[in-house]
Design a protein around this nucleic acid. Structure first.
Length: 656
RNA sequence: GCCCCCGUAGCUCAGUUGGAUAGAGCAAUGCUUUCCUAAAGCAUAGGUCGCAGGUUCGAACCCUGCCGGGGGUACCA
């Protein structure tokens, strides 16, 4: 049961007396920010009174409180301050409600009454390139949203819109034709393909950089000249000029460091005899690789054959990572899948008068937006906007989608703005489109997270390191136990994996997804604080109680014994348990898993307080009924933690 | 140039869309283990919510301007 909904249902008809649209203010009924104001509070009296002539907010609050009948499950309402209505649940009612949860597999979360077909588009790596840390957020946030929506009863399709038709295949094909190591390919085709990709990429970069260096040097010289003149003529009181000066200096600095790193890379490659000879042999490598891509797209038999051969291998490689992360998709329809539909999309847009030629490209100019969506380039090739449009058409017409979530980097927000506007004009007006955007993972220097040498961090090595670090911590803690270590090697490994992977996922999910966050191993796996470990530990402690007390959880649930909440810490814990449903609904609406991490952290906190409360001993409770009641509370806590974490894709362990 | 996002405690971050005395976690200081896992609990200290105006009963949140940081800016995805 959702207590918040139950309260809102009672208030809404009463509010109709003062407003035409009660639903617009009903959300001002929410959980109290401070327990001393009760369990829930209603704040709508103030804004309602403001709209009515000569009505004092406090008087209105009193009138509302008199009119609404909650006597069956709440204490008499209290009006406080300028017109807050404070609500406290009746003790016996809360006890009964909590009692009901014991036998409820869904932990009080009802299945939605208005199920939607929701497509969650997430992860979407470019295959044939190794997955890196940049793929983490989309995968983890997408997966959590997927699981929550599904649990709430929506028909959810997880779709991995992989990049399987891009320029990287041209590179691989070129590499395969010129640099293949047969023996290595026999042993592990994926590894060899990845090597070929890196090699061709490196060689292309080399020539690109070599060409850029003189231009860059030139640019720096020009900027320095400009700086010189500006410094000579500058008016110290002119703020704008000062700002310009500062900008100029930072521009020069940026370019200089860019130049240095470029030059270092050039030297590095030239010193490698093998690479250097390859670079000399193929000065036009970038163009040649592009040509291979173009041939593939044009339907060249040989390249298409190679692509068909390589793709499954690449998919296997990324599947390994998904298996480790315990992330699964219902569909993996990549860009290539939509290729045959693109021409029709453009034709249809033209026919409906939405697309028009501009500067040689076919564009859709959406109302109110300056930049166009380019659906066909000058050279006739289609763009990702075209693919996205085809994908939406497919999802609506073939999958009957009501709502699509795009779990994609916030840097693409403009693209989605254009895309969504175009889609509306195209006629898909009932479709709910949402860009579930997220920020960047930063290093301690506040720049995007990189290795010490400046390369992107591979996703697999990240997972390895996390598990390794977790293992060290698990071992250390186990050995420090008062009665000596109690875990064997296998258990330690398993726990390290749950803690290590859970730590990475939790750290990612707990932040407001819109903001960037700083990646920090020590905070992520810390034995203290708002981490997955903290909740896993709370769970393990409950399991410890059942183990020590030799209690069969299943049997306990069927006993039908009475649940009572006498101590304050018991009541607070029970109330939090009952709020699981409210939490999940807010996650689903805004696609924000951090509401759930917040909730779980508070739950684990309240449990720890209860656990350490001298008056709340469980196994040693003097009274048998009290003991059983507390055991039920423990059981519920463990169930909610375990379930909540599972919705985040995080596992629990019975011992830690 | 234009557009978007951000600025909250020493550090890392919440703050459910305008509500009551702005919250956590680290780090700091103090206490708690004959007692169900101390990977814990309790307590203390720490703030001009970037700055200045405005809107109103009420602003970290809305509006305007400024300062500082990041990102994006028609043919890469």
């Amino acid at each position: 049961m959702n207590i918040l909904d139950a309260l809102r249902i009672r208030f809404e008809p009463v509010l109709a007396e003062w407003t035409d649209d009660p639903s617009s203010v009903i959300e001002m009924l929410k959980a109290s920010q401070d327990a001393k104001f009760g369990d829930y509070q209603a704040n709508f009296a103030m804004p309602l009174a403001a709209k009515l002539e000569g009505v004092k907010p406090r008087d209105l609050a009193v009138q509302i409180a008199d009119k609404v009948d909650l006597s069956d499950f709440c204490e008499p309402l209290e009006v406080a301050g300028p017109g807050f209505i404070n609500i406290k649940l009746k003790q016996d009612w809360l006890e009964g409600l909590t009692q009901q949860l014991v036998a409820d597999e869904r932990l009080g979360v009802s299945v939605t009454e208005s199920p939607q077909k929701v497509i969650v588009d997430f992860s979407a790596p470019n295959v044939a390139k190794p997955m890196h840390v940049g793929h983490l957020r989309s995968s983890v946030i997408g997966d959590a949203n997927y699981r929550v929506l599904k649990f709430l009863g929506h028909a959810v399709v997880g779709d991995n819109h992989i990049g399987d038709w891009g320029t990287q295949f041209g590179m691989i094909i070129f590499g395969y034709k010129h640099f293949l190591d047969e023996e290595a390919f026999q042993q592990s085709s994926v590894t060899e393909l990845a090597r070929l990709y890196r090699l061709v990429n490196q060689l292309s970069d080399y020539h690109a950089n070599k060409n850029t260096v003189p231009t860059l040097q030139n640019e720096i010289e020009q900027l320095e000249d400009k700086l010189k003149t500006l410094e000579e003529t500058i008016d110290q009181s002119d703020k704008k000029a000062q700002k310009q000066l500062k900008k100029l200096k930072s521009d020069i600095g940026e370019r200089k460091s860019e130049l240095t790193s470029m030059q270092e890379k050039l030297v590095e490659l030239e010193q490698n005899e093998d690479l250097n000879s390859k670079a000399i042999a193929f000065p036009e490598i970038a163009r040649l690789a592009r040509d291979e891509t173009a041939k593939l797209h044009a339907g060249d038999a040989e390249n298409l054959e190679l692509w068909k051969q390589f793709l499954p291998e690449c998919l296997d490689a990324i599947q390994v990572v998904y298996d480790r992360l315990d992330i699964h998709f219902d569909l993996t329809l990549g860009e290539s899948y939509y290729q045959p539909m693109l021409a029709d999309v453009v034709a249809d847009l033209k026919q409906k008068g939405l697309a028009q030629e501009s500067q040689g490209a076919i564009c859709v100019f959406a109302e109110g937006l300056k930049a166009p969506s380019i659906v066909q380039k000058q050279d006739g090739a289609f763009t990702y906007a075209t693919t996205d449009l085809a994908t939406i058409k497919y999802r609506v017409e073939e999958l009957n989608a009501d709502r699509i979530l795009y779990v994609v980097d916030s840097r693409q927000s403009e693209h989605f703005q254009l895309l969504f506007a175009t889609v509306k004009q195209w006629g898909f007006t009932d479709l709910e489109l949402q860009h579930v955007s997220f920020g960047t993972i930063l290093g301690k220097n506040k720049r995007p997270y990189k290795t010490r040498s400046g390369d992107t961090v591979g996703l697999e090595s990240l997972l390895d390191e996390s598990i390794q670090r977790a293992y060290t911590i698990v071992t250390k803690n186990d050995e420090a136990k008062r009665d000596g270590p109690e875990l064997n090697e296998t258990e330690r490994q398993q726990i390290a994996e749950s803690v290590g992977l859970g730590g990475i996922k939790y750290a990612d999910l707990k932040h407001n997804r819109d903001s960037d966050y700083v990646f920090d191993w020590d905070k992520m796996l810390a034995n203290r604080g708002d981490t997955a470990t903290y909740m896993q530990y709370a769970y393990a402690r409950v399991c410890g109680i059942f183990r020590k007390g030799n209690i069969d959880r299943e049997a306990l649930r069927t006993e039908q014994s009475l649940l009572q909440l006498t101590e304050e810490s018991e009541r607070a814990l029970a109330l939090q348990i009952n709020r699981y449903s409210e939490t999940l609904e807010s996650v689903a609406i805004e696609a924000r898993p951090n509401y759930l991490t917040n909730y779980l952290f508070e739950l684990a906190n309240l449990f720890s307080t209860f656990y350490n409360d001298e008056n709340c001993q469980v196994l040693k409770a003097e009274d048998k009924e009290v003991k059983t009641s507390r055991l039920l509370l423990c059981d519920l806590t463990a169930s909610v933690i375990e379930h909540g974490l599972s919705l985040l894709g995080i596992r629990t362990c019975e011992r830690m």
